[in-house]
Computed example of a mutant assay.
Amino acid sequence: MKILVTGAAGFIGSHLCERLLQLNNIEVIGIDGFINPLLNQTKQRNLQELLSNPRFKFHQVDLREADLKTILDGIEAVYHLSGMPGVRTSWGTDFQGYVDHNISATQVLLEAVRESSLEKFVYVSTSSVYGEKIGKVTEESVPTPLSPYGVSKLAGEYLCNVYQVNYNIPVVTLRYFTVYGPRQRSDMAFHRFIKGILNDETLQIYGDGTQTRDFTFVSDCIEGSVAVLKAENVIGETINLGGKERASVLDVIKHIEELVGKKATLKFVGGLIGEPRDTWADISKAKELLDYYPATSLRNGLICQINDFVKFYQTE
């Protein structure tokens, strides 16, 4: 089976490619546009193990400029993870990048797969489409994103739905909740917290730090994503992938302090512009359709991420 993964050099995309290649008779074609030059070194590291695998082929190209007809030849499943991430950077003139890479690129890919015979087209979305909700959030909750980033990802969902209805593209939408773990991007919270505490830097905390998130360890997220391949009765479904436990930002910092044996210096700045105060995934549908049961505790996940940081980042 040949599978296309967009965003293959990214944090989650590289983990997904590695997991897919552990399966028998799977070939993976990866695409990544390296759209943020600041992440080039990180992405090259993410690809190191993959590039040594003969069943992995990689194209460094913007989706909007790729020869998708050729790339899609023989492809039976697509995981579409590529795009422009980040809530706080999606305002102002920077939003054009989100339009280009989250909306336009998705439409280009959907047009290309119209001519393909796919078994699954998996669109990776985000809990940011929900906005502010109280309690566990089900997939039936009305999306009310709070940021331009959330709007761009929701637009991608709507595009997928339109192409599914009109062209029978076998779309499955996954909404990830706050994924963390080894190889997390340097702009993401856990990476910043670990780096700051280890290097005696002041941590900037948005809001009062009591806001909570449904933190999802990357390997759990990947297992749920891979399960879509063989799952039945999932075409047209939107499915939450959340974590084993929720925690506040201050809880996370306390865990890291205990694990590395150092105290954090905190500076509280501004509010939660564009972000909900709390997120909490109802994963009942994922349990039913994907046999999804996240297994990694926050503490154990943090141990893995800290070890990865020490291995790869302390020498930079």
Rank of each mutant, 00 (worst) to 15 (best):
Leu250Gln: 05
Lys262Gln: 13
Trp280Glu: 03
Ser248Gly: 11
Lys263Ala: 07
Lys244Gly: 14
Glu237Arg: 11
Thr265Phe: 06
Ile256Lys: 01
Ala264Asp: 03
Leu272Tyr: 04
Asp251Asn: 15
Gly236Ile: 13
Ile256Met: 04
Gly274Tyr: 02
Lys262Cys: 04
Ala247Leu: 06
Ile253Pro: 09
His255Asn: 14
Gly270Met: 03
Ile235Ser: 06
Ala281Trp: 00
Arg246Phe: 09
Leu259Asp: 05
His255Trp: 15
Lys244Val: 14
Leu241Asp: 04
Gly242Trp: 04
Trp280Gly: 00
Thr265Pro: 02
Ile256Tyr: 01
Gly270His: 03
Ile253Phe: 06
Glu257Leu: 07
Arg246Ile: 13
Arg246Cys: 07
Gly242Ala: 06
Leu250Phe: 11
Asp278Ala: 06
Ile239Val: 11
Gly270Ala: 07
Ala264Glu: 01
Gly261Val: 12
Gly270Lys: 01
Arg246Asn: 02
Ile235Phe: 02
Lys254Met: 09
Glu275Asp: 10
Ile239Ser: 02
Leu259Ile: 13
Val252Arg: 05
Ser248Lys: 15
Trp280Ile: 04
Pro276Asn: 11
Glu245Val: 15
Ile273Thr: 09
Asp251Glu: 15
Leu241Glu: 05
Gly236Thr: 13
Glu237Tyr: 08
Arg277Leu: 01
Lys254Ser: 14
Ala281Asn: 00
Ala264Thr: 06
His255Arg: 15
Asp251Ser: 15
Asp278Arg: 09
Asn240Ile: 03
Gly242Pro: 09
Val269Arg: 08
Lys254Ala: 13
Leu259Arg: 10
Lys267Glu: 15
Glu237Asp: 08
Ala281Cys: 00
Gly242Ser: 11
Glu258Gln: 13
Lys267Asp: 10
Glu275Ser: 02
Glu245Lys: 10
Glu245Thr: 15
Leu272Asn: 03
Thr279Trp: 01
Glu275Lys: 01
Ile239Thr: 05
Gly274Leu: 00
Gly236Arg: 12
Leu241Ser: 03
Arg277Pro: 00
Leu241Met: 13
Thr265Lys: 10
Val249His: 01
Glu245Ser: 12
His255Glu: 13
Val252Pro: 05
Lys254Asp: 07
Lys263Phe: 12
His255Ser: 15
Glu275Gln: 05
Ile273Leu: 04
Val269Asp: 04
Val249Arg: 02
Thr279Met: 02
Val252Tyr: 07
Ile253Arg: 11
Leu250Asp: 06
Ile253Cys: 09
Asp278Trp: 10
Gly261His: 05
Lys263His: 08
Phe268Ile: 12
Thr265Asp: 08
Ala281Leu: 00
Glu275Gly: 13
Ala264Val: 06
Thr265Trp: 08
Glu258Cys: 12
Asp278Leu: 09
Ser248Ala: 12
Glu257Ile: 01
Asn240Lys: 06
Trp280Lys: 01
Ala247Tyr: 06
Ser248Tyr: 10
Glu275Leu: 05
Lys254Val: 12
Asp251Trp: 15
Val249Leu: 08
Glu237Thr: 10
Asn240Leu: 02
Ile253Val: 10
Ala281Phe: 00
Asn240Cys: 14
Asp278His: 14
Val252His: 07
Glu257Phe: 05
Gly261Ser: 08
Leu266Tyr: 07
Val252Cys: 11
Leu272Ala: 05
Phe268Arg: 09
Lys262Leu: 12
Lys244Asp: 08
Ile253Leu: 13
Lys263Glu: 15
Gly270Phe: 01
Gly261Ala: 05
Asp251Gly: 12
Asn240Met: 07
Asp278Thr: 09
Val252Ser: 04
Asp251Gln: 14
Gly271His: 05
Ile273Asp: 03
Lys267Phe: 12
Ile253Gln: 12
Asn240Ala: 09
Ile256Arg: 00
